[in-house]
Simulated scan of single mutants.
Amino acid sequence: MSFKMLEVEIFKTIVASTPLVAIDLVVRNSQEQVLLGLRNNRPGQGYWFVPGGRIQKEERFENAFDRLVKMELRCDAWFEQARFLRSYQHLYPDNFSGENFSTHYVVLGYELKLDINLNNLSADQHQDYRWFTVNELLASEQVHQHTKDYFL
């Protein structure tokens, strides 16, 4: 099933009016390091963050997970391989458009064990990628608090 992008003005109204539902991917490699990307876009722009994305209307969790893994990680991993962490709330004072309204996400966190070549990852959402130890990411002011929350 493919999903069409909403017109920008419609999407602004949605973001300004209601929570969005998303999946975040907490990816650990065989050395127990965590994959983070440096965000290109609002909200969270300029911070290191776990990969992830929104669930589309009429998209099942499993299908959204598989789509996001392919898009964000450029690999195949299946929903059944992941461990559900819990649900999280991500509240941001800004939004994708830069206009004056907040963004509210209800996020389903899933953990995956994958060794990924960072050179193969998409530059659409993140301008750089890096493996962090949990201690490194918790100590860094450049890692967004919402990402740190997965490890507290």
Rank of each mutant, 00 (worst) to 15 (best):
L68K: 04
F132Q: 08
D76W: 04
Q81D: 14
V21I: 14
P51E: 02
F101W: 03
S2W: 05
H146M: 09
V50W: 00
H144F: 01
F96P: 03
V107K: 02
L73S: 03
S30D: 13
V21N: 07
L68T: 02
F11E: 11
D149I: 10
Y88S: 00
S97Y: 14
W78S: 14
E7V: 13
K12I: 05
R28S: 09
P19G: 09
F151L: 13
L6C: 12
Y92V: 08
Q56P: 01
T147W: 06
F79A: 07
E136C: 09
R74C: 08
H90I: 04
V8R: 13
D24S: 11
S122V: 03
L73N: 00
L85V: 10
Q127D: 12
K4S: 14
L114Q: 08
F151C: 15
D149Q: 15
M71C: 07
D24N: 11
N41M: 10
R67G: 05
L38K: 11
K70M: 08
L36Q: 05
F84V: 01
R67L: 08
S17V: 05
N95Y: 07
D149H: 12
S30Y: 10
Y92C: 09
K148F: 11
N41C: 14
N41P: 01
E80P: 00
R28F: 11
L38W: 06
M1S: 09
F3S: 12
R28C: 07
D66H: 07
R67T: 07
E62P: 02
S17L: 12
R86M: 03
L38A: 10
E62C: 07
F11N: 10
N40I: 07
A64L: 08
V8P: 10
L108Q: 08
I23P: 04
Y92G: 01
A77Q: 03
S17E: 15
M1L: 06
A123P: 06
V34S: 02
L25F: 05
